[in-house]
């Protein structure tokens, strides 16, 4: 498997319990949409946090409430800051989205295998993104833009529910003005004040510009969107092993011991969340797996 992991997964040196969260302070907060916020966290203690690779996640702990698996959405280059974009979808994520600057939350990890970015070097890179699939891919974009010459064409298609549900709005505006990448945005539905595309994100694939024999695609979003998009990429001649998806399931531990995140043969927290489409295609087709 080409996925990457920061070595070693987790940071349990010194015999510390892998279950114990480390306190981090909220140093910045941005309201992205009505129900989604971005928190920048820094460790309360001076020790720097463990490194991570794009696509990995943390178990974030809302004190007195519980934990949720949240992708890291900031740059790998920042030694201390760990950024997460969280949508309120339950008790834990609701508390996390409401955390204010100065509040302390807990962090465990990072966990999982990230995007195989090195595999995309020298090739065209396609990001097909749905909804809150953008946060786990933003570190990829940062890395690509920091080393733009290592990649050929970079194409991004991002789909959201409505224009109001787009995250990183200002950043996207800036990315869209760049000449060295193409960032397309689609929404499922819109009002009259939206002059962009309306439809579903996989519709953008037929006119993406890339060389199917030398391209790598990273897909992140709702499973049905990834399935449709992977098929559309295969239809355009891409190999199933050059298309990567990031899977999501219920998770409690993050290191392969609670059993919740099984997806066929995979423990997604340990073997994923990023997996080649070639190895998950068969399981996508099975109901209630």
């Amino acid at each position: 498997m080409g996925s990457e992991t920061a070595a070693p997964p987790g940071s349990h040196e010194g015999g510390a319990s892998p279950w114990a969260p480390t306190p981090y302070r909220v140093v910045e907060r941005a309201q992205e949409t009505a129900d989604t916020a971005t928190l920048a966290l820094e460790p309360v203690e001076p020790a720097p946090p463990p490194g991570f690779v794009p696509g990995q996640f943390h178990m974030l702990y809302a004190p007195d409430i519980g934990e949720a698996a949240i992708s890291i959405s900031g740059a790998t280059s920042d030694p201390r800051r760990r950024v997460h974009t969280i949508r309120s979808a339950g008790r834990v994520t609701d508390a996390l989205t409401k955390a204010r600057v100065g509040d302390v939350v807990g962090v465990r990890g990072p966990y999982g295998r990230g995007w195989p970015l090195r595999e995309a070097e020298g090739k065209d890179l396609l990001l097909v993104v749905g909804g809150l699939g953008l946060p786990p891919l933003r570190p990829v974009l940062y890395e690509v833009l920091a080393h733009r010459d290592r990649f050929r064409r970079v194409e991004i298609a991002y789909g959201a529910r409505t224009p109001k549900d787009l995250v990183y709005y200002d950043e996207i505006q800036a990315w869209r003005t760049r000449k060295d990448l193409r960032f397309q945005v689609t929404v499922d539905r819109a009002g009259v004040d939206w002059y962009g595309d309306v439809g579903i994100v996989s519709q953008r694939i037929p006119d993406m510009r890339f060389d199917p024999s030398s391209a790598v695609a990273f897909l992140c979003g709702p499973e049905i969107m990834m399935r449709g998009s992977a098929q559309a990429l295969v239809d355009r001649g891409m190999s199933r092993s050059s298309v990567y998806v990031s899977m999501e399931r219920n998770m409690k531990c993050g290191f392969g011991q609670c059993g919740h995140c099984q997806f066929g043969p995979f423990l997604l927290c340990r073997d994923g969340p990023v997996l080649p489409y070639a190895s998950v295609e068969r399981y996508f087709a099975l109901r209630e797996l």
Binding site: G130, G131, L132, G159, A160, R161, D165, D188, R189, G199, I200, Q203, G221, P222, I224, M225, G228
Partner: peptide, 10 residues
């Protein structure tokens, strides 16, 4: 497309 929009996947 319309079906997927009806699903409201996001």
């Amino acid at each position: 497309i319309a079906r997927i929009q009806v699903m409201d996947i996001h």
